[in-house]
Amino acid sequence: MSLAFDALLALALLWSAWRSLATPDLTRAVVMFIVFGLLMALAWARLDAPDIALAEAAIGAGLTGALLLDALGAFGERRGGDRP
């Protein structure tokens, strides 16, 4: 049972990582990256590393996500400015 959980989580990690690099749209990439971060928090919990899970939940969900999304808005404004 737990092996199935681990295997599924590992696949999900790889899938979201792959999508965050390969998807053509930046917004989607960032959202997939945030998803990746949250899945990482679950992986740390599975690895008996709640300290890291806590940090990943706080930093991945709170800070890095907000930073990337904010940057996206800034880049988007420029791009938006270039085309009508």
Partner: peptide
Amino acid sequence: RPGGAFQAGAVLAAAAVLLHL
């Protein structure tokens, strides 16, 4: 037990981000 300055600091930072937003 798990926790400490990093995690606490990160939560505080998140609070500041939320306040800003």
